[in-house]
Computed example of a mutant assay.
Amino acid sequence: MGSNNPENRRPMSGALTYPASSQQSPAQRVAEQPRQPRSLQGLLRFAMEATQAEDAPGNSEVGPLDEERRQFLEDALKSLQVNVAEVLENAIKVLTNSAKMNSIQLGEALPDDVKNAFTVLLDYVEDLDVANDFYKMGGFAVFAICYGSENEEVRSRASSLLGTLCQNNPFCQTRALECGLLNVLLNLVESERGVTLAKCLFAISCAVREFEPSCRELIAQGGCYTLLQLLSVPEPAARTKAAFLVRYFAQHYSEAKEQFVKENIVRTITALIEKGRDESTEHLLSILQVMSDDLDPKVLSQCRDPSLKLETVLKNYLKRPELKDDRYCEEKEYCNELLNRIFNQQQRVDHVEELADR
């Protein structure tokens, strides 16, 4: 068995160590030194303990932090610091290298430096200040190159980056609108598929939500019709994101709602619900709930169209075995609310008219 004497213990591989004062015996050094730090938090704790020992008045047992230890601590802290501006600049250089980016062919795996550039940027630009700095450093130039790539992963990662930059960030939302990126995205969603389509819709959502100028631009550019068409794409993830945006616009912008009514969104949603349930169905039901919330006569008329059989579709949906699970309680609530709002009210009106005719 190994000795319990601290002087005989071997240092842990990878652990931070620091030089001991030459003026103290080994026993004194072991007794007085704080626990050796193994992380940034531990390193900071070590600094606090060392400073506290240095500043403690009347403590004759612990001497001041000598220059040798102080220098070691400063060097250790510097080694853990990251020059964020330099990291951003290097990543931007990689992604704006048009020759390199254009050489990535359709279906080809991304080179490691390109993949790492996207990964590093996504890690840092979640911070709003870093996101704003990214733009000021010319970072938005990456999008013209990346969205022009034939490689779907490049475009997908570009959308993830743009969405992260714009999410809850009016500064970057403004810059994205000024740079014409919203129009680029609205054009791309008409041809993208799969994960790339879902990421594109994510970027649109982050670029417009809670930012009225971009919402108005989307409506003006025919984006409502585009979103309505996307409710019928085969990928549930993309349908879910499209449905989320449709609900948002129907709830907050009357002109968008009018466009949805004009395109008879009720017919589209009824047909989708009748096909079966998936992750997008809850959002489709929520669209009907928002559209009929103010009892708009046009919407109610579409819902009560006998050819749609919406009442039957909703009642059959409530019979689905998976809806017995409490996880789907919102879907059940939407169905029951719609049945009561649209059809029970109609039955009451019909009953009153019947009595009046007698």
Rank of each mutant, 00 (worst) to 15 (best):
T164E: 04
G139C: 04
S103K: 05
Y253M: 07
F171S: 03
A91I: 05
L295P: 08
A220C: 05
M48E: 00
I204F: 02
S60W: 14
Y253I: 07
K100S: 11
H283G: 09
K298A: 13
N169F: 06
N90D: 07
N4C: 11
A15R: 12
C172V: 13
S156H: 03
Q24R: 15
K78V: 12
Q52E: 12
P6H: 05
G107F: 04
L284I: 09
I92H: 03
A256G: 12
Q345N: 14
E89C: 13
M48Y: 00
N116S: 15
R69M: 06
N102I: 08
S60K: 14
S156R: 12
C335R: 04
R358E: 15
F343Q: 00
Q24S: 14
Y248V: 01
T270P: 09
V313S: 08
N340H: 15
Q41S: 15
T226C: 15
K100N: 10
E153G: 02
K100G: 07
E333G: 09
A356V: 09
T164N: 11
E74H: 10
F140Y: 09
V233D: 03
R239C: 04
E263L: 09
A15Y: 08
M291Y: 03
N183Y: 09
R35Q: 11
P297I: 03
L338T: 10
V142Y: 01
F140E: 05
C215M: 04
S254F: 14
T270V: 08
K136V: 09
Q167W: 02
N183M: 14
D55S: 13
P306I: 10
Q251H: 12
D127L: 07
F46V: 00
T174Q: 15
E263Q: 11
N97I: 08
D325Y: 13
H252C: 07
N316L: 15
E255A: 02
T226N: 08
R304K: 13
V208Q: 03
G148C: 06
A220L: 03
D129Y: 06
V184R: 09
E274N: 11
V62F: 12
F244R: 11
L40I: 00
Q105G: 06
N151Y: 06
S301W: 14
E354Y: 12
G138Q: 03
L110F: 00
K298L: 09
V87Q: 07
E333F: 10
N344Q: 06
S301N: 15
Y225H: 14
S232D: 11
E150T: 13
P306H: 11
L308S: 13
Q346T: 07
E333L: 10
E353Q: 13
K257Q: 04
L95G: 01
N168H: 07
L284T: 06
L177C: 12
L228Q: 12
Q229C: 14
I265P: 01
L44R: 01
T196V: 10
T17R: 05
P37A: 02
K262I: 10
N59K: 11
L165Q: 01
I204D: 05
K93I: 11
G139R: 05
A131I: 01
G222S: 08
C146K: 03
L201M: 03
P34T: 02
L288R: 00
E68R: 14
C166A: 10
D55T: 12
A271H: 10
V184W: 07
H252L: 06
G223V: 08
G223L: 02
A237N: 06
R320N: 14
E354R: 14
A53M: 08
F202H: 06
Q33I: 07
R35I: 08
